[in-house]
Design a protein around this nucleic acid. Sequence first.
DNA 1: ACGGCTACTGCAATCGACTGCGACGTACGG
DNA 2: CCGTACGTCGCAGTCGATTGCAGTAGCCGT
Lengths: 338, 338
Amino acid sequence: MPAPTLRDVALVAGVHPATASRALNPQTRPLVNADTARKVLRAAESLGYQPNPIARSLKTARSTTIGLVIPDLTNPLFPPIVRGAEDVLSTAGYNAWITNTDNDPAREEAQIESLRSRQVEGLIVATARRQHPLLARLHEQGIRMVLVNRRVDGLELPSVTADDAVGIELAVAHLAALGHHRVAHLAGPQDTSTGVVRARAFRHAARDHGLSDDPALIAACAYWSEQDGAAALRRLLDSGTEFTGIVCGNDLIALGCYDVFAERGLRCPEDVSLVGFNGMPFLDKMRPPLTTVSIPHHEIGAEAARLLLDVIDDPTRPPRSVLLAPSLVVRSSTAAPR
Amino acid sequence: MPAPTLRDVALVAGVHPATASRALNPQTRPLVNADTARKVLRAAESLGYQPNPIARSLKTARSTTIGLVIPDLTNPLFPPIVRGAEDVLSTAGYNAWITNTDNDPAREEAQIESLRSRQVEGLIVATARRQHPLLARLHEQGIRMVLVNRRVDGLELPSVTADDAVGIELAVAHLAALGHHRVAHLAGPQDTSTGVVRARAFRHAARDHGLSDDPALIAACAYWSEQDGAAALRRLLDSGTEFTGIVCGNDLIALGCYDVFAERGLRCPEDVSLVGFNGMPFLDKMRPPLTTVSIPHHEIGAEAARLLLDVIDDPTRPPRSVLLAPSLVVRSSTAAPR
DNA sequence: ACGGCTACTGCAATCGACTGCGACGTACGG
DNA sequence: CCGTACGTCGCAGTCGATTGCAGTAGCCGT
């Protein structure tokens, strides 16, 4: 037996489908007689009627679903953000469609197009490069969206990010307090907003704490990955630059350093202190447990969802952006220099 | 300007929408004159026409999307499986809808119902408990599905799992070869098929290798989590049972042990050897790097998708199940007993 | 008693694509 | 030269829910 339709409900209730529709919809229920509404509700109940979201979407051009565009689900940074977003979306009656872009612009465009054609009512985008013509175009077309963890140059979009500047400041202050003077920064890709913001924050914090501002102490990674972190550290080491501490653009880059430490016979934290960024899971079980700047992943996702719901609710509202406070989690990868 | 519809294409091509539809669909294209078909294709191209999947789904009761039902995206086991499934699904022209159930039956039912009402053409389910009336019902209703990592009692469903028995055997053989005699097993929840299969395999392997078969050496965890792993190990320790090695039901349980080792002043691997199961990411950076039985996550997801596509393609085909071979990754959490 | 108003409810069109059936034209065989 | 068959294409209905418009009934006031 196929799923019951609105006609079936109407038949059982002895009314026209239009009336049934109005009775079932809380918005329009006042338009129908309270008694008939009750009859319809009972009929729907007894049949186990569930409205067909596809038919509804076709007619209303809405879908109660929003799209979550992320680079790669496999990056431990994203699942908690996704869950955070889903939590608030689902209590608001929305569903979430997740897609991975692998940071491939073509893939990204195809995915977003696919989401659009399914009438998603908004996008939470975590995949933005700084230059992002696609997002600019979508924004012009009136697609509601909010950015997570990244900004896009020259676009007035709501966004939620961790406060990178204070996070980096926390890390640098920690190292400075331990007595480090020459601290390196393994920066993230400089075509991402996060990468440049953290690098800039590092330079400022270093200066503020009277640390060396030798530009040779800063190396940028091509991607936010272990491999590229390791590569950047090798370049730094090979250049002969001296340093006793490293602040990494994120945890993955920091983990890449572990491999290089092993290669080069460096001990952490005895020879060099290391601090990550993001607070991904299981860092406390690492060798050594990684000191990191922890950001509230779940809350970031939740807040992004709230922002998006706001925008959907009232598109004219000026874009609101929120900065969430990170916190330093001190573990054993940092110590006073020898 | 709204997205172009089939009517627009037909207008530009100077034909009836019906003809345009047939021309656009490779299946029915032979029904229209080659020249008109070309005209239609060109018109579609020039307008950037994209068929509306919602309208199509409504009429055809298909959706080219499949549902991915997993317990929790935050568990590092699942993202690679999801990616594996997505990879083969997307090359077959399908999309994937991901939902988390948190192992909550009510939530699960709601999610699956939501998936169904969106006309998903099949389900990849990773969330099965051994007893699972919902899945049984869905199966009776003809919903195509394949199970991942778990089986359901008394249900003839295609499934793809790692070969738990050989995985456990690998782990036990490794410990036996190192000279361990009393090896404990921190089993997964016994209401999951994986939990019981691995526990049974452990008993067999222990016997085969001449290890102690003291039943006190086996402790089951309530969930596949660090907390429950830690709790189980504490119980084991408190019971006074002696052992020099532990085979864990999965990596998370093993990671829980790290905490207990620290609490009780136990050294790993000097005092006790530890092996995990699953091969989740970053285990090589743990303290100590965890020896584990690695399963091909990505391939599991990919294979599940292939199986599902097979079933969709020909529902009468007898359910095929596949077992994927795991491999032992030896790191530093295992050593000869003192 | 009649006009007018309110409160309901039904009719029918619509969203966009698909498809069974019928119509048209042409070509071909008889 | 006519009938048939085939190749193309259009018509109109359908999927299921929504909604503007119109119609009915009942009620009130004058």
